[in-house]
C-alpha cells in the first residue's frame, strides 16, 4: 500500500453502457494498484463486470471515466504489452498451433530477425508442451491443448502484463487442475505481472498473491482485497493442509454468498 507509483494502476474506472432504457452502469469507481511481478485474481459472480474491467485494461473497451496506467503512462488502446489469453482461446482456426504463436511473435517483434523469432516461437511451443502437436490446427487439438497454444502465444510476445480471462473455464475438472499447475510453473519462471479473472475460489487461492473481490453489478466495484500468503512455489496439496486456507476460503465464501454484492468498504 505504500508504493507511490504502481506498475499497473486502474484509476477510478467506470463503465457505462447506453441501453434503450437509459444508461447501465456496469462498473463504478474501480481503483486497483498492481505491483510488478504480482499475480492478481479478480473474483466475483458471473456478470459482475470482471470481463469488462479486463477488456479495459487490455484496451479493447474504453473506460467511460478514469483510466488505466501502465508504467506511468495511460493506455487506452490495445497493444501487445498487455496480452490477453481469451476465454475461448481465440486461436485462428486456419493456422497451425505453431503459426498461431508465430503470427503473434512476428507482429510483436518486427525488428528481430526471422530466425530469432522462429526460435522464440519454438521455445514457447515447447515450454507449454506442444512440441509434438505444433503442426496441428486448433480443431485437431483438445481444449487443454488449445489453451496451451493460447498461453504460449501470449507469453511468447513477452508482455508487460498478462491478462487471463477465465482461462480454465472451458476445461474439464482434471485438465483444469493440470493447467493451473502448469501455468503456475511457467509463471514462477519469469514472474510476469498477471491479472486473471476467475469465479473459482480454489483456483484464485492456489494461484494469486492477492484476490480482488468484485461486488455484484450494476455499478460493481471492488468490495474487498484478500492477500494470499502461502509460500511459492505452491502445491495444491500443501495449501489444502494449511488451516489458513480454510479461513481464507470461508472469508471469500462469506463475501460472495452472505454479503452478496451489498456495498462493502474495503479495510
Amino acid at each position: 500500500m505504500s508504493q507511490p507509483a504502481a506498475f499497473l494502476e486502474i484509476s477510478g474506472v467506470s463503465k457505462v453502457f447506453p441501453t434503450p432504457k437509459g444508461t447501465f452502469v456496469a462498473l463504478e469507481d474501480v481503483f486497483l494498484k498492481i505491483n510488478k511481478g504480482e499475480f492478481v485474481c479478480l473474483l466475483g459472480h458471473s456478470g459482475c463486470g470482471k470481463s469488462t474491467l479486463l477488456n479495459m485494461v487490455a484496451g479493447l473497451s474504453k473506460a467511460s471515466q478514469g483510466g488505466v496506467i501502465l508504467e506511468g503512462k495511460e493506455v487506452d488502446t490495445p497493444g501487445p504489452d498487455r496480452m490477453i489469453v481469451f476465454q475461448n482461446y481465440s486461436l485462428l482456426p486456419w493456422l497451425s498451433a505453431y503459426d498461431n504463436v508465430h503470427l503473434a511473435v512476428q507482429a510483436a517483434m518486427p525488428d528481430k530477425p526471422e530466425a530469432e523469432r522462429k526460435a522464440i516461437t519454438q521455445q514457447y511451443i515447447e515450454m507449454v508442451g506442444l512440441g509434438p502437436n505444433a503442426q496441428k490446427r486448433p480443431k485437431e487439438l483438445s481444449g487443454g491443448m488449445k489453451q496451451r497454444v493460447s498461453i504460449a502465444r501470449a507469453l511468447a510476445i513477452r508482455p508487460k502484463v498478462l491478462l487471463l480471462d477465465e482461462p480454465f473455464g472451458a476445461l474439464d475438472a482434471l485438465t483444469r487442475e493440470e493447467m493451473q499447475e502448469e501455468v503456475l510453473k511457467i509463471w514462477e519462471a519469469d514472474r510476469t505481472t498477471v491479472l486473471m479473472i476467475t469465479h473459482e475460489i480454489d483456483e484464485a487461492i492456489l494461484m494469486a498473491d492477492r484476490i480482488v473481490m468484485m461486488t455484484n453489478g450494476p455499478a460493481a466495484k471492488i468490495g474487498e482485497i484478500f492477500d494470499v500468503h502461502f509460500p511459492r512455489p505452491r502445491s495444491r496439496s500443501e495449501i489444502m493442509e494449511d488451516p489458513a486456507y480454510y479461513t481464507l476460503r470461508n472469508k471469500i465464501l462469506e463475501f460472495l454468498y452472505e454479503r452478496f454484492g451489498a456495498p462493502v468498504l474495503a479495510d
Binding site: G59, L60, T77, P78, F86, S90, L92, W94
Partner: peptide, 25 residues
C-alpha cells in the same frame, strides 16, 4: 469479434490482417 480482438491486441498491420485474418475468415 474474437479474431478482430486478437488482431488489435497484436497490432497486426493492415496487410497481415487482410491475408491472415480477413481473407481466411
Amino acid at each position: 469479434q474474437d479474431y478482430q480482438n486478437v488482431a488489435s491486441v497484436l497490432k497486426l498491420s493492415k496487410t497481415t490482417y487482410f491475408f491472415k485474418i480477413l481473407l481466411p475468415s
